[in-house]
Design a protein around this nucleic acid. Structure first.
Lengths: 206, 206, 206, 206
DNA sequence: GATGAATGAGAATTCATTCAT
DNA sequence: TATGAATGAATTCTCATTCAT
């Protein structure tokens, strides 16, 4: 259940080892906040983590492996989102739930922006492991959301496809830098989220 | 207006030079179709273009510069899209125009998928030049689309923000590989586009 | 008598050709004023001169050749210096002559600092052509100066060697950048020259 | 006080590392004895030192950095010179001290000719770091020497400037190759040094 | 567990040089 | 005369990777 408690040398990891492994992951994420993805290297990570290159190789095979571990760790935190979609949406409370859904979704991106961006980047370039991670995370979400559309607005011919589109929009907007999104649209993220909420509600015929 | 007709050595470019420059750009795009973005190197490009590394440096400072030139060139081709948005949308023809809009948008991505993906990738990572390129291409489009929403459905409180969201969705869906999108959503691109069309029409209250 | 009036392609040089050749030499000297000697390259020179690399090769085989031409041209301008040394020095006028000698010497370095520095640099590293240029320029000068010491102060055992030393001092001081010499000695060049004059006069027992 | 005991990768240097660093410096100096200054390259140095190019970059950023380290190391060895200047010079012993001073000065150049020549070369071209190194080494020396002139010959108006000039002469003469100096002046270094000694003594009125 | 030390391999970059026009 | 164009060759520089301690 623990993430394989042995390092690449086959040694059982103690507390210190686990901490070091963690430090590597954090260093990688830290670097991605500022420098470009394609410049991320073993040397840079080890440097940022304040350790020798060699130490890196005790815990990870290469950079992709670190990132995969990071993305995997970030994928676990979706409970709240599912809870909202699992609730009973009535005409009276739908507006509230939708608003909450959009908010929580954004908060998650806020928290895991780097990880999610890496995931999408690799997935978009055809990296299968990351693609699968994304699919698994997304599938149930999309199905639940599609069902909401179908139930709430039975006239819709493509409720599931609309769910996909809405999700794509939310994800794309959340992915952008704060600066980027302001420059690009002249709108604050908050205003845009209000737009997304209205878009969803309109489509739900609420 | 001509893209500064001198090469990096300060020489005026003749026909041959311009062709060589073009060949470099095409080689870069060609490579991006198959190999990974972060592996794209000067050597690879020069090799693909059938020339020496040194020749590359006569025309471009580095890989980013080539890609920028490619993206810039791709940004010019939006006339048809604007034409659709400039037309008078009436209840009778809106459905047709929306469908056409989504189709043309997708065709453009089909044609320039590599360039547009590079643009978004760099922009999303905070690369200012590419961010600006994206903004310039998008701004007018978003304004026109927002106005359509406002006119067609005066009840909307955030028509412009909705336009941004819809555009984000279209762009995100169009960006994915055919295979990727099928795997991720279980839907063909055609079906998804139908969803987008319905999403727009519903929001327009048509 | 004219400096070989044919270019490296064997073409007779007309006015235009001679001007171009001159422009190359000037560009090289200009560059040496600011950038480091070892960075001087054909490309840089051609760029500075506003011409194609290829044009450079019409007139010079390589960078050293340009510099040699520059140094050669600078070596012709010593008439005034010799005139001073050829004059009759009497107890009454020696101080004036010495002062004048030091001044003219400095003015020449002011005018040809770049060329003379290149000459010394190459000569110091054992480059024979430049060594010979220096020797030829210096020999007569040193002999005349040595003779002055011998005549004026017959007690001196090594008048010629003293002339060499004095000349070395003048040359070394003149070679330094204005900034360099100020920083290094805390003295203005003018003050230092006064020192040299006094040194010479003292040694001449005047 | 220890020359920052970390290499460019941030690793603490152990015995082995320090030795390797040293080997690089020695290789650079060795090469400068024979080949030209401007041809000195990282590859050449690494080759001479019997190591891979990459190893070079573990210890030095570029060639200039190695040379700076070499020059810095050479600047420490001036004790004997100062001792001579710190001694009490009396009419009876001055001749001996002057002779000794000139001799020791020459011996130092003999020992560190390469380093000192590099220092002067770079300093003369306006390289600030080397200029400063030269200044620091020279300042106290010049002051002490100036004081000797002032004390011994109170008639001098510019004792310090004379010291600067004398030092410039000694340095310039010492800088030249044995061959060079013979060719240029027709004199052996020994004879020239005798000239310098006489020049100094004359100026001291001894 | 951690890391100094070293390097092969390869990518980036620069330059002198040639040639056809 | 001049120069666009191209490139071979060499150099700089970086990185992942290994190994002994």
């Amino acid at each position: 259940m623990a993430p394989e408690s042995r390092n690449l040398l086959g040694q059982k990891m103690g507390r210190k080892g686990r901490e070091t492994r963690q430090r590597i992951m954090e260093a990688a994420l830290e670097l991605l906040k500022t420098s470009s993805y394609k410049d991320l290297s073993v040397s840079e990570i080890a440097g940022e983590a304040g350790m020798s290159n060699a130490t890196f190789y005790v815990y990870f095979k290469d950079v992709e492996e670190v990132l995969y571990a990071c993305v995997e760790a970030a994928a676990l935190d979706l409970g709240e989102l599912h809870a909202i979609l699992d609730a009973q949406w009535t005409p009276a409370n739908t507006a509230g739930y939708v608003k909450q859904f959009v908010e929580v979704y954004n908060d998650l991106w806020e928290k895991y922006r780097v990880e999610l961006r890496v995931r999408n980047l690799e997935a978009d370039q055809g990296n299968l492991r990351f693609m699968n991670l994304r699919i698994e995370t997304t599938r149930t979400l999309l199905q639940k959301l599609g069902k909401k559309f179908a139930q709430s607005n039975p006239d819709l011919e493509n409720p599931y496809q609309i769910a996909v589109a809405i999700h794509a929009a939310m994800s794309a907007l959340a992915a952008q830098h704060d600066i980027g999104i302001t420059n690009a649209t002249g709108q604050s993220r908050r205003k845009l989220n209000a737009g997304v909420v209205e878009l969803i509600l309109t489509t739900l015929r609420q």
